[in-house]
Design a protein around this nucleic acid. Structure first.
Lengths: 120, 120
DNA sequence: GCGAGTGTATGGTTTTCATCGAACAGTCGG
DNA sequence: CCGACTGTTCGATGAAAACCATACACTCGC
């Protein structure tokens, strides 16, 4: 056996993924209806695939909570994770998620630019 | 003063509405990420405008909770309400909401037909 | 193999939210 | 004006979810 899963040989359990096609709308909406996860998704969208490790995001929570949030995003079919050495790198499942929930991802991302204007 | 607000003269405080344009994505997503509210929206989508009073929906909750759910939907700019005699009738803000969150409403409604197949 | 770096799992606290029951406010028909 | 009907408000309860601190598991460079 030369290599198993990851880029380098990893003896760690690969993270369980849920395909977007198996995700109920409600789960997807709930996953995105959280400020921390929304930030993760947006930052992730602005980075190259597999370029961001879990700990590299700027969110105001401890690593335990952070790990939990990534588990939720994984369970909602929004992100894919892969072990790369000691770190776990991420990727937005843009196309697959888009196929399942057309426009949804684009919607929360567009909101990023729009931000919180609206002073009226 | 001849008449004030409603169809018939109503001396009741008109419900406070939030325009979809003033709604953060997060609020919209959270509002739709609930089974009861999702049912309300879907049933509402299948009915003529202003044809459904709050109490006419088939959801397994008491009227206190139901009233709360409608308040949430109102606050998310998803429904509009108007007093008509003793009852409060509803309307989906299809176009306005669509303008603010393109595709979102259609997404949760399409899911209605799709339902829970996916046995595979 | 040690130790630093990274992420997960566990246990317990706090917050948030859906829900109910009961009391209240309006509307309408007698 | 009374009583049926409809919906809101209030206070309390229970469940779910976010969070932290700690302890653990794995990778890698030395």
């Amino acid at each position: 056996m030369a290599q198993r899963t990851g880029t380098t040989g990893s003896h760690r359990a690969a993270p369980e993924h849920t395909h977007p096609g198996d995700v109920p709308v409600q789960t997807a909406l709930a996953a995105l209806a959280d400020p921390v996860r929304l930030t993760l998704v947006r930052e992730l969208a602005g980075s190259a695939e597999w370029s961001r490790a879990c700990g590299s995001f700027d969110v105001p929570v401890g690593k335990a909570a952070l790990s939990h949030h990534f588990a939720v995003l994984r369970g909602a079919g929004i992100v894919e994770q892969r072990d790369e050495g000691p770190k776990r790198v991420n990727r937005l499942r843009r196309d697959e998620f888009e196929a399942r929930f057309p426009g949804l991802l684009e919607l929360v991302l567009r909101e990023d630019r729009r931000q919180d204007r609206r002073e009226d």
